[in-house]
Write a protein that binds this DNA or RNA. Structure first.
Lengths: 157, 157
DNA sequence: CTTGAAAAGAACTGCCT
DNA sequence: AGGCAGTTCTTTTCAAG
């Protein structure tokens, strides 16, 4: 399932994590390969599924969404409410950005985008707390995220 | 601080969230603009900082990192250990992918990538629990993440 | 904003080491 | 595997309306 990658592949991935629009020639220049060699490796990484795609990154604040909240949610009647139904209901809320099913003190972790705190309060009370099966909910409001270079774990020994 | 965007801008952003490699011509075709018009809008969105960049998305499992864990961390002696020092120490751990300072039951939320559960156990016990100032720690192991279309909140009424 | 065109650059292909 | 040289296609960029 997991592909075998050499150091050059990892260097290519690191370059594309920094800038997903780099051309094969630019990537090759950074990792010491000619344009065709870099291009063939990039294509291989995409075909193997190591590179899943490239996505623009937006600034939520510039879009008017200044508040990010992480929610931990426990399901109440664990046998009763179907997790699939619960997930579907969550997905219908546009402010819910991420729905993660997790193992631990909570059953789900959510990431919610809101315009401000009162907007978040509205979403939480009227959309999320009212879902069938919702038990305990924990909120963590994002203050500041350290910008880390992406995928450093790739190079963990 | 937040830019004014019309519906066409939002359509452009949605297109680029779906595929960050779309050319101005392809974006224009999706939103009903000519190539130069789309190109100017995209450049403007980048200059305003609405589009922060484009990044390749990798499959961690294909890279040998099959386990993702979310940690909630409370600082113990809140006045004593400097948050800046704590963050610096976290950043030195390559498996730590995200460090978020949050308001709520926990002071920090971390995202950690590990090869497997025993690898995670090693990281947690030897790298994270040993940091000065660490208090209570909560772990949530990612089971499954619902793949949501990105940035639907953009279109929340 | 559009069309049209020129210039530049990127993707892709064979062939060779 | 990688490099070189070449072709083709796309993209950018600049006109002019």
């Amino acid at each position: 399932m997991s592909a075998e990658l050499d150091d050059t592949d990892r260097a290519i991935l690191r370059a594309l994590l920094g800038d997903g629009r780099l051309s094969a020639k630019a990537v090759g220049a950074r990792v010491g390969l000619s344009q065709p060699a870099a291009w063939r490796r990039i294509r291989r990484l995409q075909e193997e599924g190591v590179i899943r795609g490239r996505r623009a990154r937006l600034d939520p604040a510039k879009l008017g969404f200044g508040v990010t909240v992480f929610l931990g949610v426990k399901l109440a009647g664990k046998g009763r409410a179907s997790p699939a139904d619960f997930e579907r209901a969550l997905i219908a809320i546009p402010e819910v950005q991420v729905v993660q099913h997790v193992l631990g003190p909570y059953d789900y972790r959510l990431r919610v985008a809101a315009r401000d705190l009162s907007d978040f309060e509205r979403i939480l009370r009227r959309r999320i707390m009212t879902l069938p099966g919702v038990g305990e909910v924990e909120s963590n409001v994002l203050l500041n995220a350290e910008p880390l270079p992406p995928a450093r774990y790739l190079f963990a020994q």
